[in-house]
């Protein structure tokens, strides 16, 4: 099976202590890999290790290696003692699309939200940008809704629309991998359903790593399910995925285990 992500013996610490402890994890190049765990278990940090975003939050140290398929086979994204140096961080982040828990639209117009990164990061010409803008908004099903008000402020969109805009913005940069951090946590049921549908559709083209807090969503979407606890991976299911009830039991069980210890 082809891999999109391969994490080996990876640990990561901030100044005030280790968050990830000796993680081994892989994600296939097709389908959605779901990470679940209680809050504080390190799933968001693991996700942010995959595009080295933790470094923007403070000084970090690491050990181990993480390899991603960024279009040319698996390659290291953290510097290793041997082998060639990894790509520049901003290039890695560009090739790995990320969507956050609450929709982080930039305080710009709807069009600029997509156009500005394309201009600054990809240095595209304006006619290419216009073309890509429509294409990406179409792919997330937003074009019809916003095509008459592309110049209005993106902050006035509804929560679901904002989250789809964030997805479109990530897609516009031609990612090779999508990281989604509880993308439906702040949305209502309808918006959640439409985003999930969109994700299933996108997973045919992109490998996706998704952090979820919702057992039912996890079991609906997952092709592979990984359970995290206290900065470690405690369970990994590739086949015979557990039912939502089992997943909530799993999360609860670790909970009580910890209380006993």
């Amino acid at each position: 099976m082809q891999l999109a992500v391969l994490v080996e013996n990876f640990s990561l610490a901030f100044a005030d202590g280790a968050i990830l402890k000796n993680i081994n994890f892989s994600a296939p190049s097709q389908g959605i890999s779901v990470l679940v765990g209680r809050s504080g278990s390190g799933k968001t940090t693991l996700l942010r290790s995959l595009n080295r975003l933790n470094e923007t939050l403070g000084d970090t140290t690491f050990s181990g290696r993480i390899r991603l398929d960024l279009g040319a086979g698996l390659e290291d994204i953290y510097p290793q003692k041997q082998g060639k140096a990894p790509r520049p961080v901003n290039e890695i982040r560009r090739l790995v699309g990320m969507v956050f828990q609450s929709p982080h639209v930039l305080p710009l117009s709807i069009a600029e939200n997509i156009a500005m990164p394309l201009r600054v990061v990809r240095k595209l010409r304006s006619d290419e940008i216009t073309e890509r803008l429509e294409q990406c908004l179409n792919r997330v099903g937003l074009w019809e809704e916003v095509k008459h008000r592309l110049d209005s402020c993106a902050e006035h969109l509804s929560g679901g629309q904002k989250q789809r805009l964030c997805l479109a913005r990530a897609l516009a940069l031609d990612p090779t991998l999508l990281l989604l951090d509880e993308p439906t946590a702040s949305l209502d049921v309808h918006a959640q359903a439409s985003i999930e549908e969109l994700l299933v559709h996108l997973s045919e083209r992109y490998p996706i790593v998704l952090v979820s807090h919702n057992p039912r969503q996890a079991s609906r979407l997952a092709r592979q399910l990984t359970v995290m606890e206290d900065g470690k991976i405690v369970e990994n299911f590739c086949q015979n995925l557990p039912t939502p009830q089992v997943i909530s039991e799993l999360l609860k069980e670790h909970n009580t285990n910890e209380l006993m210890a």
């Binding site: 901003n90 956050f100 305080p107 940069l173």
Partner: peptide
């Protein structure tokens, strides 16, 4: 802070984040 994180996740360099996004804001 999320403005900085979002822009970084989009692959913008720190200098681009500061001059193209934060300063105009």
């Amino acid at each position: 802070q999320e403005l900085r994180i979002t822009a970084a996740a989009l692959g913008m360099k720190k200098a681009a984040i500061v001059y193209k996004l934060l300063l105009p804001q």
